[in-house]
């Protein structure tokens, strides 16, 4: 691990942590349900980027599988929550 890579991943992890904190603030404060679902959606996308950055920092390819799982389940959760608010039913 070179100095350039460790510095770059450190800065990126800090920025992504700040971004996730902002999403959490919107998740708590959001006036409507759509705001909270949008905050949750952004939160999982940011956690995806954070996981890939950690995978580079630790040189561990296994983080990719966790990121793929989060991408699949996060999209399903967003669609399910939005359709529940839209129709009062998820599967019809």
């Amino acid at each position: 691990m070179s100095v350039i890579l460790s510095t770059g991943t450190g800065i990126a992890i800090g920025l992504l942590g700040l971004a996730m904190l902002l999403c959490a603030i919107r998740l708590v404060r959001g006036p409507s349900v759509a705001d909270r679902v949008l905050a949750l959606d952004t939160l999982y996308v940011n956690s995806l980027a954070l996981l890939m950055t950690l995978g580079i920092r630790l040189a561990e390819p296994a983080f990719f599988d966790a990121a793929l799982l989060i991408a699949l389940l996060g999209f399903l959760a967003t669609v399910a929550l939005a359709k529940y608010r839209l129709q009062g039913d998820i599967i019809d």
Partner: peptide, 27 residues
């Protein structure tokens, strides 16, 4: 190796900055 490291670090910091800008817009 140094050039590749530089490219990777630039992409990581730029991507994290974009994510932060989007989250600032959300908040």
């Amino acid at each position: 190796t140094t050039a590749t490291d530089l490219v990777i670090a630039t992409l990581l910091v730029g991507g994290a900055s974009f994510a932060l800008i989007g989250s600032i817009g959300l908040a």
